[in-house]
Write a protein that binds this DNA or RNA. Structure first.
Length: 340
DNA sequence: AAGTCGTGGAC
DNA sequence: TGTCCAAGACT
């Protein structure tokens, strides 16, 4: 006999305790005030690997919904606007995929949002988690979901000692998520499971004393769970870029790779002559620690392929990764911070 | 199927 | 200073 009731065998009571907590303590987010699948999808795409604070407090969600309020407007928007609205959130492929999805819905679904799991999974940028989120949050249809929060909650609940980011671990977590799913009010249940992980069953030391499902939790040492695969070591790299100004314009380079296409940044120095060092700093991207140096161009360079002269007063309209936006602002609009 | 893709806040 | 991480998906 287990010391505690099994959450799966006793799932009705488990679900009830969880949802009751959510109805008393759950937060009121903009995307919980609507069942519009487009609004739900936009919020879910923005929130992938991104904190609530970023999406809410920095205004990305509200600005996006104001500029592109529905599937049709997103499908027809210029990609530069889409990327500009996304600027600062990172993982810019999410924005491009979101627009592709809008175009597929307009072109192949006659503008009607699909309501089945296979149809949602076929859309670019929508994986298993996001499909489950749209199914349950927008349509209140029974579909499980596992994100980082849910994985942590389930790993502790079941005292799971397999790495949650391994294929085996993922398979088991999705089975548990499916087995625990209620038949009614999946919207509240999935919201509750995620919010429990976000606010109480947190990484590090969880707030077990406040947990509504503590009677079902098998974890003996919750702060040691979940297990994860070791990360790749951070590699230091250097990036030397050119600040070339000419007739009120500045030379920018547009990224062409599959993952970064469309974003603009300062062009690499290559073998062009440089003058004084204008700015230096660093940023981290995936497992690279980048030392970024901005050099003044010694002579006006010729724009190469994928490079354009951009009017300085219109720089804000060209989507740019955050480190370059910061560095460029520092060089073009120096602020006297000698008192700080 | 590991590797890749951003960012800023918490500790 | 470094480490971890946050509502993942794609290749």
């Amino acid at each position: 006999m287990p010391a505690r009731p099994d959450a799966i065998a006793d799932r009705h009571a488990f679900q009830q305790a969880l949802v009751q907590w959510f109805h008393q303590e759950g937060k009121d987010y903009p995307w919980r005030r609507t069942t519009d699948p487009y609004a739900v999808l936009v919020s879910e795409m923005m929130l992938q690997q991104t904190t609530l604070a970023m999406v809410l407090e920095r205004g990305h969600y509200s600005r996006w919904m104001q500029s592109l309020p529905d599937v049709a407007s997103l499908a027809a928007a210029p990609e530069s606007l889409v990327l500009s609205l996304w600027e600062g959130l990172g993982y810019y492929n999410r924005a491009r995929n979101l627009q592709k999805t809008a175009q597929v819905i307009i072109d192949r679904h006659h503008g009607v949002f699909p309501t089945s799991l296979p149809e949602l999974l076929a859309l670019p940028g929508i994986g298993r988690y996001t499909a489950g989120a749209v199914m349950s949050f927008a349509f209140n249809l029974p579909a499980p979901l596992v994100d980082g929060n849910v994985a942590r909650v389930l790993a502790r609940l079941m005292d799971f000692h397999i790495e949650i980011d391994s294929p085996t671990g993922q398979r088991q977590l999705w089975k548990w998520a499916e087995g625990l799913l209620p038949t009614q009010d999946v919207r509240s249940y999935n919201s509750a499971l995620m919010e429990l992980g976000q606010r109480l069953c947190t990484p590090g030391t969880p707030s077990c004393l406040l947990c509504p499902v503590r009677p079902w939790c098998q974890a003996t040492h919750p702060s040691t769970l979940p297990l994860k695969k070791p990360r790749r070591p951070v590699v230091a790299v250097e990036e030397d870029v050119l600040v070339a100004r000419h007739n009120g314009k500045i030379l920018l380079h547009q990224e062409q790779g599959k993952r970064r296409r469309g974003l603009w940044k300062l062009p690499a120095v290559h073998d062009r002559k440089i003058g004084s060092l204008l700015w230096s700093g660093h940023y981290t991207i995936t497992h690279h620690h980048v030392s970024l140096r901005l050099h003044a161009a010694a002579e006006t360079p010729v724009a190469q392929t994928d490079e354009s002269w951009i009017v300085e007063t219109e720089l804000a309209d060209w989507p740019m990764p955050s480190p370059f936006r910061r560095a460029l602002n520092a060089v073009l609009h120096p602020v006297d911070d000698s008192n700080h």
